Amino acid sequence: MARTNDPGDPLGVGASGAGSREGRPSWAPPVLRGDRMAAGLRTLELEVRGRLDGLLQGNHLGLVPGPGSEPGEARPYQPGDDVRRMDWAVTARTTTPHIRETIADRELETWIVADVSASLDFGTAACEKRDLVVCAAAAVTHLTLGGGNRVGALVSNGAETVRVPARGGRAHARNLVRTIAEMPRAEEGTRGNLAELVDQLRRPPRRRGLAVVVSDFLGDIAWQRPLRGLSGRHDLIGVEVLDPRDVDLPEVGDIVLADPETGRQREVHASAQLRKEFAAAAQQHRGEVARALRQAGAGHLVLRTDSDWIADTVRFVVARKRGWSGAAS
C-alpha cells in the first residue's frame, strides 16, 4: 500500500500531473489540475451528463427506497399492513384498528465525504486516484441533483477540512466539484483521518438522506464504527478508489516503497516471493474493507485508475436499482 518508483509508470513516481489525453484511453478522466482545470471540469460534466443521464429515473418513491417516513393520513387497518404503523390514538378513539400512512419525502439530501489525503495523490495508470475522487463526486451530484434535491460535501486532505453546505442547483453542483478538485495537496507526512471525517458528518444529526464516502480506505479500518453510526440514519455508499500498484508490485528489481502519509521509505528488492506476499496482504486488506462496508450496511463501488470509471458506476447503479426493485416487490 505504497508508492513505487516503477520505471514503467506512465505518470512518473507519485505523479502530480496526468498529462493530456494523447496516448491515454478514451475513458480516462480529463486533466483536472493546473491551467487545464476549468476545461477539464467542463469536459467531466459533459461526460457525466452524456453517459449517466436518465440512469436513475423512477428509481424510488422518495428519499430512499420505501414508502417514506413523514406521517400522513390514518386509514382503517387491512390484512397485510405493517402492524408497526398502527395509530393507537385513532384506534382508541374510533374503536377500529387504524394505521398511519407515511408520505415519501421527495427531496433528497446527499452528503459526499471526499478523502483527498496524500495517499490519493498517486496513480500509475490513466489518472491519479485523486482524479477518481473528483469523478465520483461529479457522478453523485449529477445522479442525485434535481427535483428540489440538495447536495453538500466534507472534503479533507488531512491537514484541512472544507465543508460545502447542502444546496440545490447546477451552479452549486459545479462549485462543489470544483472545491474538491482544487483542494490543496497535503504535504508529505500529513496523515488523513477518515474516521474523524465521517464522524463530523454524523454531528450534528442531519435529516435522513444519502451519504457517499469516497476514499482509498488504506490503513487501519478505524472508520467502521462511525460508518455504522452513519448508516443507522442514512442510505450509505462507499466508493473505493484503487491503483494497480495498491494491489500488485511490478517486477522491476530494486524499488523504493514510500508511505506518503508518514514520509517513511524503504528500499526493497521486488523478488517473486515479496511480490506474492504483497499481493496476498493487499488482497486480504481489500477483503477486510469490503467486509467492513458490508457490515456497516453500505453499498460498495470500486473505481480503478486502469478501468472505465463511468462504466463501473453504471454497473453499480443498475445493480442497485435491481435491488431496490426487488425490495419494493
Rank of each mutant, 00 (worst) to 15 (best):
25 P>I: 12
52 L>A: 06
95 T>A: 06
50 G>Q: 12
57 Q>D: 11
22 E>H: 11
47 E>T: 00
69 S>W: 05
83 V>G: 00
55 L>M: 06
87 D>M: 09
60 H>E: 13
36 R>D: 06
22 E>V: 05
26 S>H: 01
26 S>L: 06
87 D>Y: 04
83 V>E: 00
29 P>Y: 14
36 R>F: 08
88 W>Q: 02
58 G>T: 11
71 P>G: 14
34 G>D: 02
65 P>S: 14
76 P>Y: 07
51 R>E: 09
23 G>T: 04
61 L>S: 11
60 H>I: 00
62 G>A: 07
26 S>M: 03
20 S>C: 04
29 P>S: 15
33 R>G: 04
71 P>K: 00
31 V>L: 12
23 G>S: 08
67 P>V: 05
38 A>H: 10
58 G>L: 07
79 P>K: 05
43 T>C: 10
93 R>G: 00
84 R>F: 07
30 P>I: 14
42 R>P: 01
21 R>Y: 11
57 Q>M: 10
66 G>V: 14
31 V>E: 13
82 D>R: 03
27 W>V: 02
28 A>Y: 09
40 G>N: 12
21 R>F: 13
79 P>Y: 08
47 E>G: 01
75 R>T: 03
49 R>N: 15
80 G>I: 06
71 P>C: 12
41 L>I: 05
72 G>I: 03
56 L>K: 01
89 A>V: 05
69 S>G: 04
49 R>D: 13
30 P>G: 15
92 A>G: 04
35 D>H: 12
66 G>F: 14
29 P>F: 15
35 D>P: 10
81 D>H: 01
82 D>P: 13
78 Q>S: 07
63 L>P: 02
29 P>N: 15
56 L>F: 07
26 S>K: 00
94 T>H: 10
25 P>Q: 11
84 R>H: 08
51 R>P: 08
41 L>M: 07
63 L>S: 13
62 G>R: 00
51 R>G: 10
32 L>E: 13
25 P>Y: 12
89 A>S: 04
27 W>Q: 02
66 G>D: 03
60 H>R: 12
19 G>F: 06
73 E>H: 02
66 G>L: 11
58 G>D: 15
32 L>F: 14
41 L>H: 08
71 P>D: 12
62 G>I: 02
62 G>T: 07
61 L>G: 13
20 S>N: 08
26 S>Q: 04
41 L>C: 10
58 G>V: 04
96 T>P: 02
65 P>R: 05
37 M>Q: 11
40 G>M: 08
79 P>I: 03
48 V>T: 09
64 V>M: 09
70 E>K: 09
60 H>L: 07
36 R>P: 06
47 E>W: 01
43 T>N: 14
22 E>Q: 08
63 L>H: 13
64 V>L: 10
31 V>I: 03
47 E>V: 01
37 M>C: 12
74 A>C: 06
25 P>A: 15
66 G>S: 15
91 T>V: 08
35 D>E: 11
22 E>A: 12
79 P>V: 04
79 P>Q: 09
64 V>Y: 03
53 D>P: 00
44 L>C: 12
94 T>S: 14
82 D>A: 01
20 S>R: 09
40 G>H: 07
51 R>N: 06
25 P>N: 14
69 S>K: 05
29 P>R: 14
62 G>C: 05
96 T>M: 14
89 A>H: 05
93 R>E: 00
